[in-house]
């Protein structure tokens, strides 16, 4: 017993990173969450980690690194040792490039599996004259410079980019709109309710409390089908006849160069976790959407996300 402990200590010193590991995982797995404790990214990852712990048979340590809007945490994931013992939460990251904060690409990471997806929506305050997406888009098209849209977080990010993309396709001069950045969905919703801005981009769960209070109203959700829990919110297809699928996605990924067998093991664990009733129930209760994608599909999603973001950011006039 004592000898085996000693041997494993020595092996740890020797460093076995990067090589194939049949018995993975032999020790706790760390998941870096580039967001503060209590946010959407943190909550969803913890719900997943609770299942992963049982499936992998090892404790999962969650490390919150939300500084710099997530750049610090994403950098830590990118620079981690690719042995499978440090992975992290990936989410839409391409927006950092236009503002010069960081330049992440799919090549920096090993995509493992996606486990959550939530659609963006366009909201107005209760005092707004707009009742549906179509009249709102027509009004913005006629005079884009006279409208203020709150991005929830920093602009060029998860919620506003899909909405701006939809507007771009509608023929609106998106660069003329006043996009207002903020410190998150909640402060933005106060701005919207207080009449400080005309529109806001956010997910429906984030706005649900103020929606039920009658202070804000969703015009449409950027999802092909109605969102569970919000059956009465119109989809873009229902109002402007164009199906749009835009919003956030959350996935487990690691640094580039992880051993294939470890990735396969983690992918299988995430797949199993997302199918469990406990996971589905917890996610539904907290209003988060379940969306599983395997590593290959996730990589396609990441590449598509980079291309879409670049197109919209370009139209918005970033990087000029």
């Amino acid at each position: 017993m004592r000898i085996s402990v000693l041997a494993s200590v020595l092996m740890a010193f020797a460093g076995l990173a990067g090589t194939a590991q049949a018995d993975y995982p032999e020790r706790p797995v760390t998941i870096i969450v580039p967001a503060a404790a209590g946010g959407g990214g943190d909550t969803t990852t913890r719900i997943l980690a609770r299942e992963l712990k049982d499936i992998l048979g090892q404790p999962i340590t969650i490390v919150n690194q939300g500084q710099g809007g997530g750049v610090v945490g994403l950098t830590a994931i990118k620079n981690a040792t690719p042995d499978g013992y440090t992975v992290g939460l990936l989410f839409p990251y391409a927006g950092y490039k236009a503002t010069g904060q960081a330049d992440f690409s799919a090549k920096d990471f090993t995509p493992i599996a996606n486990f959550n997806g939530d659609s963006s929506s366009l909201l107005v305050g209760s005092g707004s004259r707009f009742k549906d997406l179509k009249t709102a888009l027509e009004a913005i098209k006629a005079a884009p410079g006279s409208f203020k849209v709150h991005c929830s977080g920093g602009c060029g990010s998860v919620w506003d980019i899909p909405v701006a993309g939809m507007m771009l396709d509608y023929g609106i001069d998106v660069a003329a709109i006043k996009w207002v950045p903020g410190q998150g969905a909640a402060p933005g919703l106060i701005e919207l309710a207080a009449g400080g801005v005309d529109f806001q981009t956010a997910s429906l769960p984030e706005a649900s409390a103020l929606m039920s209070a009658g202070r804000v109203r969703p015009l449409a959700v950027l999802s092909p089908e109605p969102v569970p829990g919000f059956p009465n919110v119109a989809t873009t297809a229902q109002t402007i006849g164009v199906a749009v699928d835009g919003g956030t996605w959350r996935a487990i990924g690691g640094p580039a160069g992880m051993p294939a067998d470890v990735v396969a093991k983690l992918d299988a664990a995430v797949a199993k976790a997302t199918q469990s009733t406990a996971y589905k129930d917890a996610m539904a209760k907290a209003n988060f959407g379940v969306k599983y994608l395997n590593g290959k599909q996730l990589e396609e999603l990441m590449l598509r996300h980079e291309k879409d973001t670049a197109r919209v950011m370009d139209a918005l006039g970033y990087g000029k």
């Binding site: 402990v5 494993s8 200590v9 740890a12 010193f13 032999e26 404790p59 340590t61 490390v63």
Partner: peptide
Amino acid sequence: LHVPLPWGPLQTISGWLL
């Protein structure tokens, strides 16, 4: 309290220490 303090040489057996 699960503060992610580095385990160093104890890392391989850290599963038992959490």
